[in-house]
Design a protein around this nucleic acid. Structure first.
Length: 490
RNA sequence: GGCGGUAUCGUCUAGGGGACUAGGACACAGCCCUCUCAAGGCUGGAACACGGGUUCGAAUCCCGUUACCGCUACCA
């Protein structure tokens, strides 16, 4: 439990879509803030003007909104803080923790290549740090371009990571790194530290890939005389082949899963379990439960592999967990998009739709599944699945006869309720010699009604369809069967 | 190459010296339920990377090896 009010941030760079790895980082930051009454901030790291786009920024907002990970203060755009970044670089120049470097990129590249050719690893040799002050002033005055380099002190830089415990880097392995480019724009590490200080961030929780940036950033905090935040480095998420998750692995953007019919709560739940475990074999959780259970002690050090199969299963769990009414807002637009009905029509049949969703959601793994399975209950005429016909209507005329008898039975059932229909249909099965094998009646009927071999319970289907549509679909089926019966059958 | 990180079933993980003949979940297989399909229930196969220590005792602690990942830019 933190002593003061924690302030965390999620700081993506707007160079693509909101990646599932980013979403998980955001989630853990958000969970921590919610759990301990802290603030969760959002910062867009758009200092790389060439790669940053407004479209990406929008995609990040949309992704976070869809997931329900709201941020607490106004969004910070890193690019807007250029003045402060430069001022901080200036301060380091003034307090002697940084120096001007006149080496050009070309010279540096040459020296790097030469070192590599010799089989040595290149590290900046600090030659510009040895230029006398007078000469530096002269060259600056003459308009010679320079970068600002941080002078890495001797010693070791270490911190107590919330997930890895102690991590230490010998400073001698870190070269004097550039913090400000010749054009006066900041390098990543400076921008991050400057902003994190300004935003009064107390816990930096981010991906593992930033571990080697951390000692540099810690040195920058010290050079700027700022208090250090805590650090927590989350494991990466890999694709099924153990490599960094990328487009090759299929859907990696949060938006992809949204369009695949995944529920945000399931996405969040699944992501939370990648790199974190609440213990006690708990897996399926609501967001509130996650907040309650979240603890950095349960954070994993090892990279996790993203398994879409488990995501689907998780979605199925959340689908059966939430009410049909909650499902409505996601399913209705999808049904309209499919052309089954308009939103207004669906609203007019709300109770009927609710009943249908109740039947479908337990059998579906995604919203898309639900829409697909809902088809027979909306379309006027249905198509008969070839496999269903081959399996359940093998005997055309026999099936037609059974269906005709079924029609008579249903037409005269006293009331359209599951109980009375079941009673009547089972009695029919018995009369037809299918005692204990009522499926011989139910299956042909199921195909007549849905065109498929699989559906919700037959009486539920009957109820959803209503008497009129049921009877007319049976008529259609009988006609179809008679028409397709072969001549030799006679 | 250098530096850093990581290592339990195919996958996500529980485990923090004895409760481990290593637990749960996904996936897979079988059975039950049953009008079909799901859901659900039950059962099964399946793991402590390797080698040294420390200890009465190690999946758990230490060291080394190996493998994998990350960083090593005037990218973020």
């Amino acid at each position: 439990m933190p002593a003061s009010i924690p302030r965390l941030r999620f700081a993506p760079s707007p160079t693509g879509y909101l990646h599932v790895g980013g979403a998980r980082t955001a989630l853990f930051n958000w969970l921590y803030a919610r759990k301990y009454g802290g603030q969760f901030l959002l910062r867009i790291e758009d200092t790389d003007r060439a790669r940053s786009t407004d479209e990406s920024t929008r995609a990040i907002f949309e992704g976070l909104e869809w997931l329900g990970l709201g941020w607490d203060e106004e969004v910070v755009h890193q690019g807007a803080n250029l003045d402060r970044h430069q001022a901080d670089a200036r301060r380091m120049l003034d307090n002697g923790t940084a120096y001007r470097c006149f080496c050009t990129q070309e010279e540096l590249a040459e020296r790097r290549a030469a070192a590599e050719a010799r089989g040595e690893s290149f590290r900046y040799d600090r030659r510009c740090d040895r230029i006398p002050a007078g000469e530096v002033a002269r060259r600056v005055a003459a308009g010679e371009p320079f970068t600002v380099r941080f002078r890495v002190p001797d010693g070791t830089t270490s911190w107590d990571d919330l997930v890895h415990d102690e991590i230490a880097f010998p400073n001698k392995d870190i070269e004097d790194f550039i913090v400000l480019r010749t054009d006066g724009t900041p390098i990543y590490n400076l921008a991050v530290v400057s902003d994190d200080i300004a935003m009064r961030i107390t816990l930096v929780m981010r991906g593992d890939d930033h571990i080697s940036n951390t000692p540099k950033q810690i040195m920058l905090y010290r050079a700027l005389g700022a208090e250090l935040p805590r650090f927590a480095h989350l494991p990466m998420i890999h694709g099924i082949d153990g490599k960094k998750l990328s487009k090759r692995h299929g859907a990696t953007a949060v938006g992809d899963y949204q369009h695949l019919g995944i529920l945000p709560s399931a996405m969040l739940n699944f992501l939370a379990l990648l790199g974190w475990s609440p213990g006690n074999d708990v897996e399926v959780m609501t967001l509130d439960r996650m907040i309650e259970l979240f603890d950095v002690g349960g954070l994993q050090k090892k990279a996790a592999i993203f398994d879409p199969k488990k995501l689907e299963w998780m979605n199925g769990q959340h689908l059966s967990m939430i009410s049909a009414a909650e499902l409505l807002e996601r399913v209705v637009p999808a049904l309209e998009a499919e052309g089954y009905a308009t939103v207004a029509e669906l609203e007019g049949r709300r109770d009927w739709l609710l009943g249908l969703l109740e039947l479908l959601k337990v059998r579906a793994r995604t919203i898309d599944d639900i829409v697909r399975q809902a088809s027979p209950y909306f379309r006027g005429a249905i198509e008969y699945d070839p496999d269903a016909v081959a399996k359940g209507w093998k005997d055309r005329s026999g099936s037609a006869e059974i269906l005709e008898r079924t029609r008579e039975t249903l037409a005269s059932v006293p009331e359209w309720t599951a109980a009375s229909m079941e009673e009547a249909l089972r009695a029919l099965a018995e009369r037809l010699g299918f005692a204990e094998k009522a499926g011989k009646v139910f299956q042909p009927l199921r195909i007549a009604l849905t065109g498929l071999t699989a559906s919700p319970g037959i009486f539920d289907v009957l109820l959803v369809l209503g008497r009129e549509r049921t009877l007319s679909r049976i008529d259609d089926a009988v006609a179809w069967l008679r028409a397709s019966a072969t001549p030799f059958a006679r």
